[in-house]
């Protein structure tokens, strides 16, 4: 089945075409607005989606070598996300579905991320434990089967990607500076200082990043030369604490729930130190570890088309009355 996927939930305008789950073409446009405004501005972002979506759709069909008549279903992100941004993708998807009388399927953005290690690397057989880490989300989900999910842990305050971006700001780097933090941390000494690991010693499998961010802010206030002379060391220590706070609950959940496979996804899954640590710890348990290709860590439409295809196979379909939902829960999540 040829499925067109459309994603406009936040910063990226994206489209992709998949044939039975295999990627034919996938385009993600980091909006030019960002360079100009340095962050997402909702209403402007919606306008950018409007402006960018049609040319991106033309391009995605061109790169797949298909005409618009050949598509067999349309999948679109229904939420969670910025409502104005979501509606641009949804209205477009409905237009295409209505005009060609094609099935329309709304997809949860986070469910897309959950499965993104499966594209280009083969299907990952559930059950597995999924660690979803990004600028807006930090969640641990048990995946029993497609559409059967169990919430195991989540952040109590900030998302891990946000902690990276905010620590970057504390250190005078530009926002968003998560990738720059990782680059500098590579050259730093992890023994320079010990920052607290959020939720360590607490019950459950949750995460917390507000305290770590504050600890970094306090340290910078106290140690005058921390940023000027020890920036790499400081960031290496921050990154180690941030990564450890993800690794420890994940590994504990692997053991307690008996999972044999760990899958990381989302924008922060691009962090090499996190991948390294999860890989090491999984190997120690004798468990498998999977991570997405870098291009599928950040927001993309491939994951939307893929989950849409799976949902259609499972018999789900949405009507043209479907609307966007800013706080859309993952279908099948307990």
């Amino acid at each position: 089945m040829l499925v067109l996927g459309i994603e406009t939930s936040c910063d990226e305008t994206a489209a992709a075409i998949l044939h039975d789950g295999a990627v034919l073409s996938s385009i993600v446009s980091t909006q030019w607005l960002h360079a100009r405004y340095g962050g997402v501005v909702p209403e402007l972002a919606s306008r950018a989606h409007l402006k960018l979506l049609t040319p991106i759709l033309d391009q995605v069909f061109f790169e797949a070598g298909l005409s618009k008549e050949e598509i067999e279903a349309v999948a679109v992100t229904r939420g969670p996300g910025l409502i104005g941004a979501l509606l641009v993708g949804i209205a477009t998807a409905k237009g295409i579905a209505f005009s060609r009388n094609l099935p329309l399927v709304g997809v949860n953005h986070l469910e897309g991320h959950l499965w993104s290690a499966a594209f280009g690397g083969g299907y990952i057989q559930p059950p597995f434990l999924a660690l979803l880490v990004s600028g807006g989300h930090t969640i641990l989900i048990g995946v029993e089967a497609f559409g059967q999910y169990k919430l195991i842990g989540r952040t109590r305050d900030d998302a891990v990607g946000e902690a990276f971006d905010k620590v970057a700001v504390l250190c005078g780097l530009n926002y968003p500076g998560g990738a720059e933090v990782e680059r500098l941390a590579k050259q730093g000494d992890r023994a320079y200082h010990t920052f607290p690991v959020g939720m360590r010693g607490r019950e459950g499998y949750n995460f917390s990043y507000s305290g770590l961010k504050t600890a970094v802010a306090n340290f910078i206030h106290k140690e005058a030369d921390a940023v000027s002379h020890h920036l790499e060391d400081l960031l290496a220590c921050f990154q180690e604490a941030a990564v450890t706070a993800l690794v420890e609950p994940s590994i504990k959940a692997m053991q307690d729930f008996g999972y044999n496979t760990l899958v990381v996804s989302g924008g922060v899954a691009a962090n090499q130190r996190l991948r390294e640590r999860l890989q090491e710890e999984s190997a120690r348990l004798g468990a498998h570890f999977y991570s997405p290709k870098l291009e599928y860590c950040t927001d993309n439409a491939t994951m939307i088309a893929w989950v849409g295809w799976k949902r259609l196979q499972a018999g789900y379909q949405d009507s043209l009355a479907m609307s966007g939902e800013a706080n859309f829960p993952i279908p099948g999540m307990k």
Binding site: P80, L82, G136, T155, D157, D158, A159, E162, D165, S210
Partner: peptide, 25 residues
């Protein structure tokens, strides 16, 4: 964030109060 968590607690909300930096609202 901590002060906000306190306000929500004061209004008898016992769920997680997460940062809206990325999601805006």
């Amino acid at each position: 964030t901590t002060f906000t968590q306190g306000i929500l607690q004061g209004l008898n909300y016992d769920g997680a109060v997460t940062s809206p930096t990325f999601t805006l609202v």
